Measured scan of single mutants.
Amino acid sequence: FIDQHRAALIARVTNVEWLLDALYGKVLTDEQYQAVRAEPTNPSKMRKLFSFTPAWNWTCKDLLLQALRESQSYLVEDLER
């Protein structure tokens, strides 16, 4: 899901800070967390977050999807259609 809908997630996720907090310490290191937060816009934050995903396994991507479902369920539901 995460890889399949990358472009839509970059464009449409609005609550990136919540995602970062949910992933911090589980998937994201402090350095990665700070790097994403330093980006000026939500799309650039999501691009930076996605720059780390090639090194993630399915469990990490599932944690991101779970966080998306909790914070932006309407968006996930729309993309699952």
Rank of each mutant, 00 (worst) to 15 (best):
L79R: 03
T59I: 11
V13Q: 03
T41M: 04
T41F: 00
D21P: 00
K48G: 01
D3M: 00
A38D: 11
V36D: 03
E80K: 03
V27I: 08
L28M: 03
V16D: 03
L19Q: 08
R69Q: 04
V36P: 01
Y74M: 13
A22M: 12
I10Q: 04
S51A: 08
Q66D: 12
L20F: 05
R69V: 09
R69I: 11
D21I: 04
S71F: 02
D3H: 05
E31Y: 07
E31G: 07
A67R: 05
A35M: 11
A67K: 08
Q4I: 14
S51T: 12
E17Y: 05
G25F: 01
P54W: 13
A55C: 12
L19R: 01
A7L: 07
R47D: 07
P40I: 09
L9T: 01
R47P: 02
S71R: 06
E39V: 02
A55Q: 13
P43F: 08
F1M: 04
A7M: 11
E39L: 10
D3V: 02
L28Q: 01
R47S: 11
F50M: 15
P40D: 09
A38I: 08
L23E: 04
A8T: 11
V27T: 04
R69D: 01
R6L: 09
E39S: 02
H5G: 02
E31V: 08
C60A: 15
A67N: 10
T53C: 09
W58H: 15
N15W: 05
N15F: 00
A35D: 05
D62G: 11
A8N: 06
K61E: 09
L79I: 08
V36Q: 02
D62H: 10
V27R: 01
N57I: 10
L68Q: 01
H5R: 03
Y74K: 15
R12A: 04
L20N: 03
K48V: 07
Q34C: 10
Q4R: 12
P40Y: 05
L20A: 10
L20I: 12
K61Q: 05
I10S: 00
D78Q: 12
R37G: 07
T53Y: 15
R6S: 09
C60M: 15
L19P: 03
L68S: 02
E17F: 00
N15Y: 06
L64S: 02
K61V: 05
L79T: 02
Y33G: 04
L23S: 01
W18V: 15
E39P: 01
W58N: 15
E17M: 07
Q32V: 01
W18R: 15
N57V: 08
L64Y: 03
Q32Y: 01
S44R: 13
M46T: 03
W56P: 02
F50K: 00
K26Y: 04
D21K: 10
D21N: 10
S51N: 02
V13Y: 04
L9D: 03
A67V: 07
Q72N: 15
L23T: 00
P43Q: 14
V13N: 01
K48A: 03
L19M: 03
L19C: 12
T14Q: 11
L63K: 10
V76P: 05
Y24I: 08
S51R: 02
L63T: 09
T53P: 00
V27A: 11
W58I: 11
F52M: 08
V27E: 04
